[in-house]
Design a protein around this nucleic acid. Structure first.
Lengths: 250, 250
DNA sequence: CCTTAAAGTGACGAAACGTCACTGACGATT
DNA sequence: AATCGTCAGTGACGTTTCGTCACTTTAAGG
């Protein structure tokens, strides 16, 4: 008869704190060396309390992935809101994905890991629901750009594709490029002199030109223009990358 | 003063046997549930002997990945040797990658895992050297097709790309598509009605058309033609896929 | 100040990793 | 044939990590 009152906000804050520390540990030790014991040691709560928030290691990973998706959503939204042509904004969104992968490799990696059936299978129902909600929001920004492009006739949807397929084509292209080149993969043989930002730019242009997405590359100036746009839309992110000792080669 | 004679072939056979059993375990339990203890239990050798072959779990994973690359090389070679135009053969090689991913999901997954810095870092020098050699061979088949295409003028290399970049563009496109759709990733939201073989076909055509790789899609018939080619070049693989209860939707 | 239900704790058993001191098989030597 | 030296082979063990659960603490209501 004494229903102890829980401070919902404090609980939420504690969860965020645990996630923060876990992310720091991943950045420091690598995702494969993240252990619940280490997280518990980093945090002023006991193991039992941590396990109250996350039913297991996989659930924690999914929570980190959800955090990552939130962050990425913010970047995508800024690309969506940029005042420019649709093709430019689509290119920009792909580059915001790259900025994110460079800036938070540990989040990028965790996001991928968290998609494994194994991880999803061991996560809590609530966390999975949250993930779905976040991903729908993420897709929304991209969907919006494509719809606009079709509406203003700068893009003609091929008769054999729908909007979802087109979005997927763009996503898998960007994902493949970034995943293989942004540092997660140890030097694949012959990977010499492939620079992720340049390859991503090429791939985007190839895809968009293949789709006849106006204005075509020939009509546009070189990538120095993209650089300026990125500086304008993502000044902080560029700064942080510079602080990391990494420089975008354009 | 007693140099015991080692039967090199027997040693090699034992190693292959251990790898076989490990692959079976991955197929059965998932890569995340593969343990050295389970491998040792499956095999008529003691833990110490297994560790003579593989300095640790990661080394075993890389060995499995190398096995996978060998298998894939064989498939690529058949695409290379097919008597058809270069564009057709390039398409075919991407589809052989898909066949492999569908037929041996555990190998596809292990191959990706084995590229993680963590795994490479804990593997033996010899195994890493072997990996490099195998990957160079793998790239060779693809490189060959592109060089031929340039030579016979069906493909004009864009001035801002070299052959390596073009090969990478194709690879990352195929990799991204297959990785995201071939079952490794649990249902991403909105992934409904994306069928990997159809999307891969679309993506290839978009990329090749973007590159102006002749003959362009408009000049060609539909994907039923691709189906026939696959049936001709990879009859066994198609059979095995059918036996798995999976059917290619063309 | 007591009661009580929930929050919080950390010792513990199980599972996996990789090691190392020991065993014994086999070729060389006498 | 007897003996020796070496190294492949063995598996028990120490360590790390996971996730649980029996117990302790906390605080609201009486």
């Amino acid at each position: 008869m004494t229903p102890r009152i829980l401070d919902e906000a404090a609980l939420q804050a504690r969860e965020e704190h645990i996630i923060d520390e876990a992310i720091k540990l991943i950045a420091l030790l690598g995702i494969e060396n993240l252990t619940m014991d280490k997280v518990v040691a980093k945090v002023p709560y006991s193991k039992g309390t941590v396990y109250k928030h996350f039913i297991g290691k996989e659930d924690l990973l999914l929570a980190i992935s959800n955090r990552a998706v939130k962050l990425l959503s913010g970047l995508f939204l800024r690309a969506f809101q940029f005042e420019g042509c649709t093709r430019e904004r689509m290119l920009l969104s792909n580059f915001s994905y790259l900025l994110y992968a460079i800036l938070y490799p540990e989040l990028f990696q965790t996001e991928i890991c968290a998609k494994a059936p194994n991880v999803i299978g061991k996560s809590s129902e609530a966390r999975i629901k949250e993930q779905e909600k976040l991903e729908i929001k993420l897709m929304g920004a991209i969907f919006g750009i494509v719809e606009e492009a079709i509406a203003d006739k700068s893009l003609l949807l091929p008769e054999y594709m729908d909007i979802q397929q087109l979005c997927f084509a763009n996503w898998s292209m960007a994902y493949g490029t970034i995943a293989l080149l942004s540092g997660e993969v140890e030097q694949c043989s012959g990977r010499t002199n492939l620079i992720v930002e340049r390859e991503l730019f090429n791939q985007c242009n190839l895809l968009f030109d293949g789709l006849q997405w106006k204005p075509l590359t020939k009509e546009k100036k070189h990538c120095s223009e993209l650089r300026k746009t990125i500086e304008q839309v993502y000044p902080n992110e560029l700064m942080l990358i510079k602080e990391k000792g990494r420089e975008l080669n354009f």
